[in-house]
Simulated scan of single mutants.
Amino acid sequence: MNSILDTFDSLSITLLETLKRFPLASLSAFLASLILILLIEIEYSPTNEIVLLANKVAFVLTLGIFLFPVLYLLNRSIFFKLIGIGVLVAYFYFLPLEIDTLAVLRHMLLILALFFMFFWAPFLNTNISNKNIWEWTMKILIILLVTIILTLTFYGVFYILMFSLRELFEVEVLDKRYWQFIILVLGLFSVNFFLSQMPKYICLLQLKKYTRVGAVFTKYILTPITMLYMFVLFAYIVKILLLGLWNEVTIDWMIIGFTFFAIATYMFWTPLVERLHSNFRNLIWGSLFVLSIILALSIWIRLIDGLTLEMLYLILLFDVWLMLISLYFLFFENASYKWLFFSISLFIGLSQSEYVIDWLLLLMR
């Protein structure tokens, strides 16, 4: 009995500490889940203005779930909380009442930009080693993975329970209950669990070496796969150049895929060595710089052939980012991971700017 009470006390303290650290994020998650559950209950109607407004509010609140924690990591003053509220109000004002597919896509990209802020926001004004940044990054990713697993576990248990009730006792459960339950879990548990696991004092985060599994994975699985990917990709590019197939094939996604493989490989080596060898650094970032030039050439050829810039806009921004970040890591021996993550957030944010879109369209005319 005492152990149960101790567990309950521990959970209560953790919850209260989370609410104290991230009150607006928890509130945003709660309100968003509540609104979405109610919308599902009344069966969402795109013709009802009140329903559309409620959906818009929930949409904006989901952004707040990510916005307020990263602002907390940047600065814990109330001023930054007010900035966050102001950003959400402005976002609500400019967001259309009827949310279409394009608005959803832009919303997801903004959330992605905010998520990458988790990796650099605590270190913006701090000179810190890449080992510390990588340790923090892995910590966040592990917390996210555990949160996803626990969320899926909750849903799996609920699904099995509902299935058992239907099969054994012929209790019919409406399909919308499943959606309501997963939203409830996401809003009440998942968000708060993720936030509660974030280290309170980042400066006290201990550097850890890989386990044997981690070292073997990095050295003998991830690195060889990346090198093989590089060889195949460049061989394919040579084939395209020799046969003049630029107008028939596109290599955008192959280059994008290799970019993430290469950067992940480079970063996974961080805990294994004191300083990455210059040849390895030049190989990874040099190959990415060459690929950025090839990708720019591919985009240019397709623009000449009549493809509109609107269709290549995100790829063009990705190419600009890849070229700049490659040069940064090539020419700065002490290049910091925080600027890598910062640049990702920045370019994703810029990709949603109407001014940037208009400027690029004007530039390419």
Rank of each mutant, 00 (worst) to 15 (best):
P69A: 11
S129N: 11
R106S: 14
K209F: 03
S28K: 05
P122D: 08
Y266L: 12
N130R: 07
L105A: 13
M323K: 01
I225L: 15
L314K: 05
L184D: 00
F234Y: 14
L52R: 11
I42N: 05
I37F: 08
S326E: 06
L297K: 05
F329L: 01
F280W: 15
I50P: 00
L38G: 08
Q206E: 15
T226M: 14
N282E: 04
V213R: 11
V60F: 07
I99E: 09
S45W: 01
G257N: 11
S77Q: 03
V232K: 06
L362I: 08
V213H: 03
S351Q: 01
F30W: 10
V216R: 10
I263C: 02
F158P: 00
L52H: 04
N192K: 08
L242Q: 13
G214K: 09
I4D: 08
S351Y: 03
L276G: 05
P199H: 13
V185T: 12
G64C: 03
E170K: 06
L82A: 14
K239A: 12
T7D: 06
I50S: 14
E98Y: 09
E310T: 10
D252L: 04
S12E: 08
L350T: 04
Y328M: 05
S196N: 08
Q197V: 00
K338A: 10
V216H: 13
F342I: 01
F116S: 02
